[in-house]
């Protein structure tokens, strides 16, 4: 009905607007996707050919040598392993803590509810700052340790609040009937509430996993001196910083001279970028519905 009314009046301006709109959106799509396609093409193109330039959407001389090289000669495999491990552990630990706290906060009769809620809310607006946190991590002997990736960020107030508002939306009758059957709070949580929270848990898992996978600064600040604890994003960061500092000259690539001799730094950078991006690209489309729901839920509540 709305469409019909629009069509009767201002037909030409509307057509022009629609044409403009679709052209603009197509442009947005191209501008967003092109960089990814371009680096994928370069990473699959023979290094000595890439130097000639002119690679846009697909490789000219197809090869997997770039990937073979980066995994052979640098500590990228260690970095990849650490990234995967921190993503798995960090996500599980984050889900565990967020769901337990969120359930206790959703119980209106819980005596410490307001206290717990305030203690968490404060952390959303306030932080001790870079130096005091660094000193704390040092004092706790977490420097040069894998656990610095998991422990400090274990509790995220934001995730707790998203999850709590979801639990608040579930019918309370379910809990009451379980209680009448003699279930204790832990059982109600594990058997009644948790299974119903699957969609929102998926959202939070996505946020946690992406955060873990993309983190580089904790490696940089706390574990920079330990190659065995390095992560993929940190290695990529080092390579990008190194080459941009020497304005694209070859040879300065981190990871050894033999690496730089076989393939150009450009190809190395592009292949590592792809290795660091692909896991996200693969998981992302499947979870899109979940995170949009989760985000709007959290925002409405806050």
């Amino acid at each position: 009905m709305r469409l019909a009314a629009v069509k009767s009046g201002g037909k030409t301006t509307d057509r022009i607007f629609m044409a403009f709109l679709y052209a603009l959106m197509t442009l947005v799509g191209i501008v967003t996707l092109y960089p990814f396609v371009n680096i994928l093409a370069i990473s699959l193109n023979a290094s000595e050919d890439t130097v000639r330039g002119g690679i846009y959407l697909w490789p000219r001389v197809f090869t997997l040598d770039n990937y073979r090289t980066i995994f052979q000669y640098s500590n990228l495999l260690t970095a990849f392993g650490n990234s995967v491990l921190r993503t798995l552990l960090g996500t599980l630990a984050g889900l565990f803590s967020a769901s337990l706290i969120a359930y206790s906060l959703s119980r209106k009769d819980f005596v410490a509810r307001r206290f717990v809620s305030l203690a968490l809310a404060f952390t959303l607006y306030f932080s001790g700052g870079l130096v005091p946190v660094y000193m704390l991590i040092r004092d706790l002997n977490l420097l040069n340790s894998f656990w610095v990736y998991i422990l400090p960020g274990l509790v995220s107030a934001w995730n707790v609040f998203i999850l709590r508002s979801y639990i608040d939306g579930l019918p309370y009758v379910l809990q009451e009937s379980a209680k009448l059957d003699g279930a204790n709070d832990l059982q109600i949580f594990a058997k009644v509430i948790l299974p119903l929270c699957k969609p929102v848990l998926a959202t939070i898992a996505l946020f946690l996993a992406v955060g873990q996978w993309n983190a580089w600064f904790d490696t940089f600040l706390y574990n920079g001196g330990r190659t065995s604890l390095t992560t993929l994003q940190y290695e990529l960061m080092k390579i990008l910083q190194n080459t941009s500092a020497s304005s694209g000259n070859s040879g300065a690539v981190h990871g050894g001279q033999e690496l730089a001799n076989r393939v150009s730094p450009e190809s190395i950078r592009m292949s590592i970028t792809i290795v660091a991006t692909v896991p996200i690209l693969v998981v992302y489309p499947f979870l899109q519905n979940y995170f949009v729901k989760g985000l709007t839920l959290g925002a409405v509540k806050s």
Binding site: F122, T123, F126, S127, G128, G129, V131, P132, V133, M135, L136, L151, P152, G153, L154, V155
Partner: peptide, 8 residues
């Protein structure tokens, strides 16, 4: 992890 640093 969030309050002790403020003491710092």
């Amino acid at each position: 992890f969030n309050y002790v640093p403020v003491w710092g």
